[in-house]
Structure formats: C-alpha cells, structure tokens
C-alpha cells in the first residue's frame, strides 16, 4: 500500500529529495518527513524489540512512534513534526 497525496486544489512546494535509509525519496518542500515516507510507501519508522516494524500512531508529536535519526546532526527527531529538507538523510535504524 501507499499513502496518496491529494492533488486536486493543492499546490505544493518545489520538488525535493530526501534519503531514507539510503533510499532516495522524492517529496515536496513543506512536507514532513512522515508524509514523504508514507507517500513513498515507507510506513515502518522503527523496529520494536520483537523485531516487528512500527508505524506512527498519532501524527501530532505525542506518541513518539516516529522517532528517526537525522544523520547530519545525530538528532532523534519526530518525523511527523520535522519538515523534509532537500538532501536530508534520515535513518529509521536507531
């Protein structure tokens, strides 16, 4: 499955590319990392202790299921809040 961008009546920012676990992901300026990932069919934001993939739950910064690592800064950021920036590299592997 993949999430779908709503296109009717919507103009997005310019096309940009981010890198998720080494994979190039095309998205638009203004989108969050979570939106970019979901629209690309990447819905696992981390792996739990059982080795199972976890999706994000709340999309409002509270559940902490979408913590990913910003490679450049080493920061752990919430994908549902953090805006995608062109060339940004993100890891879902801790």
């Amino acid at each position: 499955m993949s999430a779908d961008r709503i296109t009717q009546d919507v103009e997005r920012g310019e096309p940009i590319t981010i890198v998720i676990d080494g994979q190039q992901v095309a998205c638009f300026a203004g989108e969050t990392i979570a939106t970019a990932m979901l629209a690309a069919g990447l819905d696992a934001f981390r792996t739990d202790q059982r080795g199972k993939p976890r999706g994000l739950l709340c999309n409002m910064g509270s559940c902490y299921e979408c913590l990913v690592t910003d490679i450049a800064t080493g920061r752990r950021i919430r994908a549902c809040l953090a805006p995608a920036a062109d060339g940004m590299e993100v890891s879902t592997r801790g």
Partner: peptide, 11 residues
C-alpha cells in the same frame, strides 16, 4: 502496533 494503524485524529 502494525504500521497502518493510526489514531483517527492523526489521519
């Protein structure tokens, strides 16, 4: 906990 399960408010 499966991906694809959201709080409705998140959707």
């Amino acid at each position: 906990t499966l991906p694809g399960v959201y709080a409705a408010g998140g959707i």
